[in-house]
Nucleic acid binder design. Structure first.
Lengths: 233, 233, 233, 233
DNA sequence: AATGAATGAGTGTTCATTCAT
DNA sequence: GATGAATGAACACTCATTCAT
């Protein structure tokens, strides 16, 4: 009895572990695929490599994804989270200056996206958009547009509160987006070829970009006493 | 006599036409390859397609380039012009305000690089850097660093002349570089998937970025009468 | 218990069959390759033919050998058995006359090499030596030299025992080697083009060569009563 | 007048040289082809190499030979001389001992065939017989059979004159043929891979083979006073 | 006649995908 | 469900052959 319980306990445990592995499989494969697609490009990545990195055999990959192309699509879908609703809510409840909000946004973005594997998606989409137009359209709709909308709302808030002065608001948003995209590209591509010491320091990079973004390069006349910015920072 | 001259003239002409074709071939192939590599990626582009777009047969491609990989390298090399010396000279002789200089720089960059086929190189390098590390290092050395050096000199000029105020100069240069890279990426990748009317208008885009770059988003206190910027623009 | 044993027995059997096929593959491919390389030459043999003759698809060939050239090298290596040690031992323990020894040697050479697929290697090496100099050197060292050493030992034994009289021993060995090589060439090459009835009969061929080798063409003076040779044969 | 004669003289001279070259072309091409086919095999030799070694362009080769295969056939045909009639006549008028005749024959063969480019044909035929069966049959008929007939006539002469004693005459001829073929193979193939000092010395090789051929390896009883051989050599 | 640029059928090799185990 | 041996379509690259000059 004790023995049998031990045995069945062991079996159950094994079974459970297997189940866990089984359920984890697709995720592990998607992670492996994301990494490799980002590193080497979709076409240059072999299915077998993906399987190997996920610790399974070639055949198993095709058990979960009917083709390499479907794997690609799944990689994108999996990593395109609809986080924007949540962020929009944070936006609504934010109470500080819009400059602070922008700083906060970028810091959070770095923490939750830029520094994570998810940032690889951006590089992947940029590299493969032309080969997967439907996915690109989906990404455009699900990620790019909501992202830009959020940026626009931030800027509009700044303008509405008299903090910002923006002649061309629709295009000003790229002043925020471009540095983030550039940072990702740097970390996933050319930046990896420079000597380690000269790689971009993300925090410093973001700080510098926010500073330029808010105040510009031009020397500003001596601020009057009630300038909001100077109080806050 | 006349006849013989006519004949040799004709032969020379024909010969010249052939010669011209032969000499033009590599360029035509490089152009075709650049286009296709940018569109579809290196691995996903078939040699035969490159040849077909250049109007020759598969075999002819290999008459001029010993392998697809050498073709890739030649595409990069061909399009990495050492234009920076020339630009540095223009820099030295520029006499206006540094803000104007920046505007001028971006305008001619757009005209000479951004709007041309050469801009595809940037997308190509970003997509393939990991697969061609030696080429990436070369590009880093020949294009990225000189470009960043030029940006740094511009910013330093602005600071030296008391026009700019820049806390972190080394990282501020990305405020100029990132928007340009983003513009290129947009035009060669995801941007091509949005409805035609919503594609970025480059002039407007550059104007907006320069404006943000110079003055920032934050509303500035009423400028005093002798502000340089307002005189010039 | 019985059932489980039956099942595992069946599985083991099936597995074994698969294993056997998998393990047999390289050998089947090497055999097919040897045949075709001998028949048509290395360059003129298509990889797909080799695969087809081994009963597998083109791709499978490359599962076992990374390239056609490696296949060639494997074919040679596989068939260059270090049989010479064994033969040298037989040599040491042989007790009859050296003439008998020579007859015996050629007979078993025919049986174990000449009549088998292994003889194709000689033709192959002769045809391809210049294109695969490293393999040729290996063959020279592993086959040619040991073979010639063995011949030399036989002749030396004959001389030492007063049976043979050989003015130029180093070159006399070719009197044995040349007819064997010729026989192989005949069977693998030109000889296959003559009408079936006129193909060399190997036993008769070997007998005739041994006879000439031992006694020469010239009519010999009536042998004295104690001549060894005449007793034995 | 003088001038014009000079010119036309010069032109004629140039023309003559051209003519000579033009007429020499096919021969130069055949020589180049023979060398390369022998060295590398038919399939592994590129047409362009042949042309290059003959000092002409690729196109010119096809001006003289409609295809690579026809070139091969021409190479063989060109080098299969019907020298056997002439040799048969020498045979009829030879007056010495048959042993001397054999020595003379092999010496002449070495001088006129073995040491010349023509010997490459043998290697070529052995390598390619299976791929060019009609050529092989032709070679068999034009070279192999006449050669063997000549050998047979020599042996028959020896037997008829009471000089030779040959149990199996039809197969005894290979005792002469095989060493010659072996010598050729050695010089064109594996032999080229051994250190220079260990290459076969043809004269010594032939002498050794003839000696074995005539007297065999076995020590012969003391010859009686009237043995022909001992007088002559 | 001679050239050599151009061709495209042919071959070695890869790799996504299948399927028997 | 998992495996990995097997497949064959696809692709890089070669080279005999053509033909405009």
């Amino acid at each position: 009895m004790v023995l049998s319980r031990f045995i069945s306990g062991k079996q159950a445990e094994v079974h459970a572990k297997r189940e866990r592995r089984k359920e984890a499989r697709p995720g592990e494969l998607l992670d492996a695929a994301l990494e490799l697609f980002v590193e080497k490009g979709f076409a240059a990545t072999r299915s077998e490599e993906v399987a190997a990195r996920a610790g399974v055999s070639k055949g198993t990959l095709f058990l979960y994804f009917p083709s390499k192309e479907e794997l690609f699509k799944a990689v994108i879908r999996e990593n395109i989270s609809g986080r924007f609703k949540e962020w929009n809510e944070e936006f609504d409840s934010f109470e500080g200056s819009t400059a602070d909000m922008l700083r906060y946004c970028l810091a959070i973005w770095w923490e939750r996206v830029g520094a994570t594997k998810a940032s690889g998606i951006t590089k992947l989409m940029i590299s493969e958009a032309q080969n997967f137009p439907d996915i690109a359209a989906f990404y455009q709709h699900e990620v790019v547009e909501p992202g830009q909308d959020l940026m626009r709302r931030i800027l509009q808030r700044g303008v509405a509160r008299g903090e910002f002065e923006i002649p061309d608001l629709d295009y000003a948003i790229y002043g925020i987006v471009a540095p983030m995209v550039f940072l990702i590209m740097s970390r996933h591509s050319l930046g990896t070829c420079v000597p380690a010491g000269r790689m971009l320091d993300p925090e410093r990079y973001i700080a510098a970009q926010v500073n330029t973004l808010l105040h510009g390069l031009c020397r500003q006349p001596a601020p009057s006493a009630h300038s909001k910015e100077n109080h806050k920072t």
